[in-house]
């Protein structure tokens, strides 16, 4: 793993019925994914509100990944479709506020798609690494680096 990756944090909201199980499977399969990711188990991505994403950025996330079931396969029928619309709405807010909307992304996986999930996580971490740390965290990170050096 690129050492630069350690400088960023990606919060991944994972649906209990698919992505969270896929992350579990990834562990069983010994699949590696970057340690920058903090997985938050959610009962369904439809439970996620717009403010959850914004609060994640406010509280230090450099990127937010929402991982829900494949479209048409939601355990609660259309929770993932609700989440998709909310993610798009939150991206508008991020853009207006001065953050890159690419820092928030939704992906769809099934509980058997461990490899795809790890690929999505790697891709998200790479995207966020290219964008750099969130401007909300830059001052804090600089302080931490100064203390270390």
């Amino acid at each position: 793993m690129n050492s630069n990756n350690k400088e960023i944090t990606v919060v991944a909201f994972c649906c209990l019925y698919c992505a969270y199980a896929a992350a579990d499977l990834a562990g069983s399969m010994r699949l590696q994914y970057p340690a920058n990711v903090r997985i938050v188990r959610t009962p369904c991505t439809g439970r996620l509100e717009v403010e959850f994403f914004l609060k994640a950025f406010e509280n230090g996330a450099d990127g937010v990944l929402v991982a829900g079931c494949e479209e048409g396969s939601c355990h609660f029928k259309e929770g993932n479709l609700v989440a998709k619309r909310r993610v798009n709405y939150a991206r508008k807010y991020l853009q207006e506020s001065g953050l890159e909307p690419e820092r928030l992304r939704m992906v769809n996986v099934s509980s058997a798609m461990a490899r795809q999930l790890t690929d999505h996580i790697k891709d998200m971490v790479e995207t966020v690494r290219k964008l750099g740390p969130s401007p909300l965290n830059k001052a804090k990170r600089q302080q931490q680096q100064e203390i270390k050096s």
């Binding site: 509100e49 717009v50 403010e51 914004l54 406010e58 991020l94 506020s97 001065g98 953050l99 401007p135």
Partner: peptide
């Protein structure tokens, strides 16, 4: 209440980002 929470969050992000 929900829109206030979203708006306040977005403004805090804007304040810090810019």
């Amino acid at each position: 209440e929900r829109e206030v929470s979203i708006m306040a969050s977005a403004l805090r992000i804007a304040s810090r980002a810019q």
